[in-house]
Design a protein around this nucleic acid. Structure first.
Lengths: 200, 200
DNA sequence: TTAGATTATTTAACAGTGTTAAGCAAATGT
DNA sequence: ACATTTGCTTAACACTGTTAAATAATCTAA
């Protein structure tokens, strides 16, 4: 009778061990290094038994994103509880969101499908990747009447533009978007808003 | 003598064929379906010859992102050339950026490491993924004095917040970010800006 | 034209991946 | 003590990226 409970407890423990093992491997060597056999190694089993706890590898990732959202939700709640005015709450929550992303980098990546694409040095040293910035920075500097193209304020404005547009794009590419009408409205609102804040 | 040129031309053609084949496969079946052998099938060769044109699979992806940035750059230039005032130019360019992303979805994905994570239905039907929205929407509605939590205007504001924060986060997770000081400033500016635009 | 050297291409192989089916061994129920 | 279930492993399949060896085709020179 009671042994049933013990076995049940053990089962839940290995299930949880599988998830922690996966996260541990990813934290050590990145998402690309995650494999069923390596998970099995960590929990000291062979690969096939994992399939008694999860249908497949995807299911493990899905469970990790679920846990990620729960953790994020907890952080948001805690940030919210520190304030009473909605404005303060919003600011605190978005800061908490930001902090969550970097404190739980790997979870955030699987939650929102960010694949630190490859050998980052390569992509980041890609000269062509600088081309968009050149187009935008000249217009921004002209609008703000600032000569130095590399000044911090231009960088800042460019990042603000880029963040909102790239954010909206990537949310939509993950099928997480809302209706196209709302997207268009957010895009236009944000762009014209930033432009207005720049215009002298 | 002249045959050297012909061979050179043929080589450049197969190199280009490899890239188009890769893009074709991705457009048909997604990034996960891309493999060296499938590329070889399309160009009617066997896999090892691809390594005479590219060092490895990563190199193919890198070349595609390079082409992506060049294409994006061209679109931006064309949008810019249609206007003379910097404000109009900026608006046109960001709209062009937006349009590029959806007209060249696969390229944008490899350029910015967006891995339409897995079976999207699953992640999108994840109840926990709605939790953040619930936290934010209540504060937004309270601030805007709107009862209906699902009203379009709240959705819009939430998406604006989310886009800028998620955009900034994912840019930084890809090591594409600027200094932390600028990040913080962009984040605070954007958040307080949106909050101010909401506050009655 | 024929022999030798280069080049182009393929076949075979290695180590790894996710996943499934068959086998074995230990614990359990009767 | 026997039968049955359970837990776990081994073996296998069909893939993946990548490399080395073997073969086929082409060009060069006598």
């Amino acid at each position: 009778m009671a042994s049933k409970d013990r076995i049940q407890r053990l089962k839940e423990e290995t299930r949880s061990n599988i998830l922690s093992a996966a996260l541990q491997i990813v934290k050590e060597d990145g998402w690309q290094a995650l494999s069923m056999r390596k998970i099995a190694d960590v929990i000291e089993y062979t690969a096939p038994i994992i399939y008694e706890y999860f249908a497949n590898k995807e299911a493990i990732l899905l469970e990790l994103t679920r846990k990620g959202f729960l953790l994020l939700s907890k952080d948001l709640q805690e940030a919210k509880d520190k304030y009473t005015s909605p404005a303060d709450q919003l600011e605190a929550m978005w800061l908490a969101y930001w902090n969550f992303a970097f404190a739980n980098k790997e979870l955030y990546q699987v939650m929102f499908g960010i694949t630190t694409n490859c050998s980052c040095e390569m992509v980041n040293n890609l000269a062509e990747a600088e081309l968009p910035w050149e187009h935008f920075s000249t217009s921004i500097s002209e609008l703000m009447k600032i000569e130095d193209l590399n000044s911090d304020v231009i960088c800042t404005k460019y990042y603000t533009f880029w963040s909102v547009v790239h954010g909206l794009v990537s949310i939509n590419l993950l099928n997480r978007g809302d209706s196209d009408a709302i997207n268009r409205q957010v895009l236009r609102d944000a762009i014209t808003g930033i432009i207005r804040s720049i215009t002298p």
